[in-house]
Simulated assay, not measured.
Amino acid sequence: MRSILRICSRPGLVAALALSLAACSTPKVQPTKAGGRYYLNDGPPKGITQAQIDAVQEPVPKAERFVSGALKPYVAMGKSYRPMNKLTPYQARGVASWYGTRYHGLPTASGELYDVMKLTAAHPILPIPSYVRVTNVENGRTLVVRVNDRGPFLSDRIIDLSYAAAAKLGYAAKGRALVEIEVILP
């Protein structure tokens, strides 16, 4: 205990210790064949064919009861978010990323389990669940996804899609793409 107090009384040492611990927890990034990048242990599912991706059907937008716990204000990575509590017109343009096998089978903000082969998305403020039309600006492909999770929390990204959604939009190999999103009002 005394050694901890001695360390805490030296701000420089505390900062150095914190930085070295943070470096240990920084996710390792792995390159893809197409020049994109994804976090180590979060790549695409193995053995998935393009035919399987093509067979995944878009969700049909419908009115659903919002998940009350996902409507509460929250803080992520030091930034405060206030989710929308009703569906209103919403459009945005920015970078989309995707998340894969690292989160497969884990609970989303909706309480549902994440499935890399469903057309779902994470958004920091849209009601959960809601439906969004996503257009890849680079190739013109458009897709409807169901928002059931929170994220992404990196400042340069507006939406995080499931692996299947990113593959159908043609950017899974790159890791991210410029997209336009628009809420679908049922």
Rank of each mutant, 00 (worst) to 15 (best):
A164E: 06
V132T: 13
E182A: 14
V29C: 02
G140C: 01
N41T: 06
A177Y: 15
A109G: 10
V147D: 00
S20I: 11
K79V: 15
K28I: 03
L40E: 11
Q52H: 03
C8R: 02
R146L: 06
T88Y: 01
T101H: 02
P129R: 04
A109T: 05
K118G: 00
S80Q: 13
E182T: 12
I181E: 11
H123V: 02
V183C: 14
P186K: 00
L106P: 01
T32R: 09
A70E: 12
L40T: 12
N85G: 09
I4W: 11
V75K: 13
A63V: 10
R157S: 02
Q30Y: 03
K33S: 15
K79Y: 11
P127C: 15
V116S: 04
G105R: 10
L87A: 03
Y171A: 06
G170A: 14
Y103T: 05
I158K: 00
T142R: 15
V56W: 01
S9D: 05
L185H: 08
S68M: 13
V116W: 01
A165H: 08
P45M: 13
V145C: 10
R157P: 03
P61F: 13
D54K: 04
K86T: 05
L5T: 06
A70G: 10
I125Y: 05
T88N: 00
R82F: 07
Q50H: 11
Y131E: 09
I158M: 00
R10T: 02
L169P: 04
P186V: 12
E58M: 12
N148C: 12
A34E: 07
P127K: 10
Y81S: 01
L21H: 08
H104P: 01
D160F: 08
R93L: 00
Y38I: 14
R82C: 07
I7T: 06
E64L: 12
S20A: 12
Q50K: 14
I7A: 08
G69W: 15
V132H: 03
I184L: 15
A122T: 07
A167T: 02
A166N: 08
G43H: 07
A166G: 08
P83I: 13
G175I: 06
L119A: 07
A165M: 03
K79W: 11
E58W: 11
W98A: 04
V75E: 14
V56M: 01
A70K: 10
S3A: 11
K33W: 15
A34H: 09
P45Q: 11
K118V: 01
Y103M: 07
R102M: 14
M84Q: 11
P129G: 12
A172P: 15
S155K: 04
R150P: 01
R93A: 06
L71F: 02
G35L: 12
S155D: 06
T120W: 05
V179S: 07
P27S: 04
A34Y: 06
D115C: 03
K46W: 06
V75Q: 14
A96W: 04
L169G: 05
R65Y: 01
G151W: 01
